[in-house]
Design a protein around this nucleic acid. Sequence first.
DNA 1: TGCAAATAGATCGCACGCGATGTAGTATGC
DNA 2: GCATACTACATCGCGTGCGATCTATTTGCA
Lengths: 155, 155
Amino acid sequence: MTSRQTKRTANPAASLQLGEQLCFALYSTMLAMNKVYRKLLLDLGVTYPQYLVLLVLWERDALMVSEIGERLFLESPTLTPLLKRMELLGLLRRIRDKNDERQVIVSLTGQGRALRDRAKVVPGGVFCAAGCSPKELASIRDQLIQLRARLLENS
Amino acid sequence: MTSRQTKRTANPAASLQLGEQLCFALYSTMLAMNKVYRKLLLDLGVTYPQYLVLLVLWERDALMVSEIGERLFLESPTLTPLLKRMELLGLLRRIRDKNDERQVIVSLTGQGRALRDRAKVVPGGVFCAAGCSPKELASIRDQLIQLRARLLENS
DNA sequence: TGCAAATAGATCGCACGCGATGTAGTATGC
DNA sequence: GCATACTACATCGCGTGCGATCTATTTGCA
């Protein structure tokens, strides 16, 4: 009960011990990941959430705000100001749809598309910092995606 | 190459595909976890980072700001305002050490200690929302902790 | 047609999270 | 014994993240 060894063996979601909690591992690893990204993205002049928006738009351009939100699990109070900042940076355009004036279509500018080439070194840098085999990383990723699905069901 | 199936099989840290990225899985799962916590902590009247500070102080009271920061991987620009808010809530006290006036010692109030009882239902609620076996959760946790260590080394 | 309900974003307010920098107190070197 | 470096926090500025609420537009249906 009081030994050091039990500190990380108990139920990772049913204890008030910080070291046991999955949630804290998740939270603190995300902070560490963010730190790695900040450095790698400094060159591109974007933040991590902005980089995520770029990833989405590089895959498929001209999306509604809500479509970007669905892919990134972000809401309009987060996205609207974020997209405005990216528009100011000259990376994208926000244009109201003529057919349905409620919708705002977000499209990359030439500059936004051009950033993709410079971004190609980023995943390699992250992989390097993670120092794991691709297989291990893929395994964690898939477990997290499953966990995410269950958390969103029950929230 | 273009099939749906390959979307989550490639190197999870060396691609510009959103779905493949471990980092995004980490980020979005953390957001989902936060959503679950927000509901569970509403009753206690604290945020998730505030809850983490309580976890730390429940384990060991009367810590320096920097000691809390080491345990939570947070810096003083985050902690100082956060602790001030918690002080206003009446959960803790921030007192400069007489022996070394640079240090601020953070100690729980009676109210802060008392919150521990009401917090005991929180881990169960998270466990329930996660809908995994304790073994699975412990496995993810340990993999994340390893990853965190490597990311912090290389950042 | 006409108006309530639904939809898509925008805005407000608050709480992080941290790089850069400032400040007060303490230790160190000569 | 005194300048200098170092330490522990504090502050500033900016960018998220989101619950609550608002606005404008469209849809649905009586």
